[in-house]
Nucleic acid binder design. Structure first.
Lengths: 149, 149
DNA sequence: CTTAATTATATCGCACGCGATATAATTTGT
DNA sequence: ACAAATTATATCGCGTGCGATATAATTAAG
C-alpha cells in the first residue's frame, strides 16, 4: 500500500535538498555579508557589477535569473547605501545605466575573503564541487531554453 | 590584475547556481501546486504530514530545515484551508499536535502526479540525480553537525 | 505618419525565511 | 518547594521572489 505513495515521500525528492541547501547557504553567508552591509542577493548583484558595470537592469536580471520585480527594489536599496548610481541612458531612455560608486567599487576588496571563507565551510571535495557546478548549470540552461525568459 | 578578483566572479561561485536552481524549482512547481491550492513550502509540509502525522511543530521544523518563525504562519495558512488541525498535547501543553483533516489526507491522491511531472521536466540522467541527491544531503548533514540547530 | 506592438523598468500584493525577541509550560538545581 | 534554566511555540520586522499589471520610450506596420 505504501508503494503507491513512495514517490511523494520527502526523502525521495531531489527538489527538497536543493531548496534546503540553498536556504542553508544564505544563512551561512549572512554573518560575513553583514560586515559589508549586504544581503546575499545584494551581494550577487554587486558581483555582477564589479565585473561588468555599467550595465542595465535587463542584463542584471538575466545574469541572476531574477525578475525585474525582484531587482528593482534591490537596486533602490543599493542606491540608498551609496554603492551604486542609476541614470537614464541618453541613447535610449528606457534603459537604466547602473554603475558603481567609488564606495561600491571599493567594497570589492572587502569582499575578497568571502568566497574562500564560505568554501572552507563546505567540506566537499574539489571533484564533488565540479560535478555539482556542472549539473546545476546544465539544469539552468535547460530552463532558459524550455521557457522564454 | 584580474587574477586578484577571480574568486569573486559570479561564474566561479557554487552558491549561485544552487540559489538559482532552487528559485527555478519553486517556479516550476507553481502551476502544478496551484491546482492543489498549495505553495511549494506548504507542499513539503503536507508531504511530511502525509507520511508522519500527527507530529509536533519541532518535528516539522527539523524535517524541513526551517525555523519556527517560518513554520508557524505556514500552519496557520494550512489550517485556514482546512487541510490540518492544531490541538494542544494533553501530556505536555507546550507541544502542538498537528494532524491532517480528512480533506488534507485526501489531497495526497491529487498530489500523486506531481513528482513524476516535475521529474520529467528535468532532463538529467538517473545517475546525475543520484549524485546530486547524495552530495546535497551530505552538505545538509554537515550543517546540522557544524551548528547546533 | 500615426497607430499598434514591443521593450525596459516600476508598482502592487502575497508568501516565504529568518534574526531577534516574547510567552507559556515543563524541568532542573539546590 | 521554588527560583532558574530549558523547551516549544508565537510575534515582529525586514528583505526577498514572483505573478500580474502599469507606465514610459522606442520600433514596426500599414
Amino acid at each position: 500500500m505504501d508503494k503507491k505513495y513512495e514517490a511523494l515521500r520527502l526523502k525521495n525528492q531531489l527538489c527538497f535538498p536543493l531548496y534546503a541547501v540553498s536556504n542553508m547557504i544564505t544563512r551561512r553567508y549572512k554573518p560575513l555579508l553583514d560586515k559589508l552591509s549586504l544581503t546575499y542577493t545584494q551581494y550577487i548583484v554587486m558581483m555582477v557589477l564589479w565585473e561588468a558595470a555599467p550595465v542595465n537592469e535587463k542584463f542584471l536580471c538575466e545574469a541572476l535569473c531574477l525578475k525585474t520585480n525582484t531587482v528593482t527594489p534591490l537596486l533602490k536599496k543599493l542606491e540608498e547605501k551609496g554603492y551604486i548610481v542609476k541614470t537614464k541612458d541618453k541613447e535610449d531612455e528606457r534603459n537604466l545605466v547602473i554603475d558603481l560608486t567609488e564606495r561600491g567599487a571599493a567594497l570589492r576588496d572587502d569582499a575578497l575573503c568571502v568566497p574562500g571563507t564560505i568554501a572552507r565551510e563546505f567540506h566537499i571535495t574539489e571533484e564533488e564541487a565540479m560535478f555539482l557546478y556542472t549539473i546545476l548549470y546544465k539544469m539552468l540552461e535547460q530552463d532558459s531554453s524550455d521557457n522564454n525568459n
